[in-house]
């Protein structure tokens, strides 16, 4: 191809003829090309890690500021599916590593089998991810403002009054109880030290001149939480869902146990939706990488079946393998961060 092409492989090349078809004209030899490819891949992987690194920092800052949201939110994730996915991904990483080893030995049939298995792993991961996402979407455990759109989405749970127990529901929500709650709150507030007698008490916090203000009152924070971005209709739906606040488990025989949607849970921490926001962001970005990985593996499989690789040229398989491992490693961090702790 060029005068500089002094590839020692030329002499005993059994797959190619005059020159190596994979070799660019600007390389001196395929070793140089391979090393450059590998260096490029590692650089790319470092950018991937930094990309996820940003999200991990966001996770860390968020969790440090609001640990209760994460403790509360993680109970909505199913460790079984998460664990299964971890196993699937680890196995697929193993088959990918085997594919690289076999290609170094030139056993291209075994490479193809391993790639198919890896592809199954990628597909399996996405199927399980689909099951999990589908479940979350069905239950209304959605990121951001969509979290507030279907407060009644938890279909396994019914409000008491819909089960024909209106009286019970009414009792549960009696004004007495609400008053008691407020009285307790007032009690708490009155325990704060009294203001100096000579000072005029300034009850307004400076921020309260804003649209909703930021006060310590949980109720106010909840309202500001909603007001921040929700359309008025939805705010009305949530705010007027008073009778929905108390739920009873639907004990029909074939119903599984489900957790109530956080909006139906008066004990939920403020901004519980943030857990699902970052969950969907991080696993979603990871899912995109799995899909890209699947496409890459498919491409590698096609090239393998066409006989493009041999023991002295399998750079794409090697680099594809590196990429697939990094996808795996990121999941290894995501799984405990969301499901376990």
């Amino acid at each position: 191809m060029s005068q500089l092409d002094i590839n020692p492989a030329h002499g005993h090349d059994h797959d190619h003829h005059d020159h190596l078809p994979h070799q660019g004209h600007h390389w001196r030899d395929s070793k140089q090309q391979f090393e450059a490819g590998k260096l490029g891949m590692w650089l790319f992987l470092s950018t991937e890690i930094l990309l996820f690194g940003g999200l991990f920092v966001a996770y860390a800052v968020w969790r440090a500021n609001h640990p209760e949201i994460f403790e509360y939110g993680s109970q909505f994730l199913d460790t079984f599916w998460g664990g299964l996915n971890t196993c699937v991904l680890l196995l697929s990483s193993m088959t990918m590593a085997m594919a690289v080893t076999y290609s170094a030995r030139g056993q291209m049939k075994a490479v193809a089998i391993c790639l198919v298995l890896t592809l199954f792993g990628a597909g399996g991961f996405m199927v399980i991810k689909y099951i999990e996402y589908n479940h979350k979407i069905h239950e209304g455990l959605l990121p951001g403002m969509y979290f507030y759109e279907k407060p009644e989405a938890s279909y396994m749970w019914l409000p008491l009054d819909e089960q024909g127990r209106e009286a019970e529901a009414a009792a549960a929500l009696s004004a007495e109880e609400q008053s008691a709650a407020f009285a307790a709150q007032v009690q708490l507030e009155s325990e704060m030290p009294p203001a100096p007698a000579n000072a005029e008490i300034w009850t307004k916090s400076p921020a309260a001149t804003g649209p909703e203000g930021f006060t310590d009152s949980k109720l106010k924070v909840e309202t500001s939480e909603l007001r921040a971005f929700l359309p008025d209709s939805v705010i009305g739906k949530v705010e007027n869902s008073g009778p929905l606040l108390k739920f009873a488990e639907d004990t029909s025989p074939n119903k599984e146990l489900h957790l109530a949607h956080p909006l139906q849970d008066p004990e939920r921490p403020v901004n519980a939706q943030k857990f699902f926001s970052i969950y969907f962001m991080m696993t979603g970005l990871h899912g995109i990488h799995v899909i890209v990985g699947g496409i890459v593996i498919t491409w590698l499989l096609i090239l393998t079946l066409r006989g493009r690789f041999s023991y002295d040229y399998y750079t794409p398989i090697d680099l594809g393998g590196l990429y697939w491992h990094i996808v795996d490693v990121i999941w290894i961090f995501l799984f405990p961060l969301f499901y376990l702790i």
């Binding site: 009850t203 307004k204 916090s205 309260a208 001149t209 009152s217 106010k220």
Partner: peptide, 16 residues
Amino acid sequence: YNRCSSCHSLDGSTAV
């Protein structure tokens, strides 16, 4: 009114 606003709304919504 800004001293009342954290507990009493102007739009009919119920607060403290």
